[in-house]
């Protein structure tokens, strides 16, 4: 009876996390289409990678830990899901910074509704 209660608690908490992650994922996919230029779309990438991938991975780890029908290998699945969540948490931010820095240096994307560019003003160039 006790293990039944613990399993249901883990599963319900995991399902809440997965539902939040699916909502963030759908919102990020809509914003990726609606946003006007590249530098604003970085925000949509961060919603999609942190909210849409890390949170459901942790939720899937909790669901896997609380479901005894998967057999003894469910701890393997939970550990793998946690490692994936950790990797996405580190590499998503690092990759977004790398591609943003390269795009700004190489001027590969123009930003059309431009109001202020303080980095260019600090480097002595003309901003906007």
């Amino acid at each position: 009876m006790d293990t039944e209660l613990i399993n249901w608690t883990l599963v319900v908490v995991g399902q809440i996390l997965v539902a939040v992650g699916v909502f963030c994922d759908f919102v990020a996919a809509l914003l990726m289409i609606r946003f006007p230029n590249f530098y604003v779309r970085l925000h949509a990438l961060t919603i999609g990678s942190i909210g849409g991938a890390v949170v459901p991975a942790i939720g899937a780890a909790l669901i896997a830990a609380g479901s005894p029908f998967l057999g003894m290998y469910r701890w393997f699945l939970a550990g793998g899901a946690l490692v994936t969540a950790l990797f996405i948490f580190i590499l998503g931010g690092a990759g977004a910074h790398a591609i943003a820095r390269a795009t700004y240096r190489a001027k590969a994307a123009e930003y059309r509704p431009c109001y202020v560019d303080q980095l260019a003003e600090d480097r002595g160039e003309v901003g906007c």
Binding site: M32, G48, A53, P56, A60, L77, T84, G92, A96
Partner: peptide, 20 residues
């Protein structure tokens, strides 16, 4: 860079989808 952003987000979400 827009295409890179899209395939980045697609890959990370596909990883979460494979776990599910």
């Amino acid at each position: 860079p827009d295409m890179i952003l899209a395939i980045d987000a697609l890959g990370y979400d596909l990883a979460a989808f494979l776990i599910i």
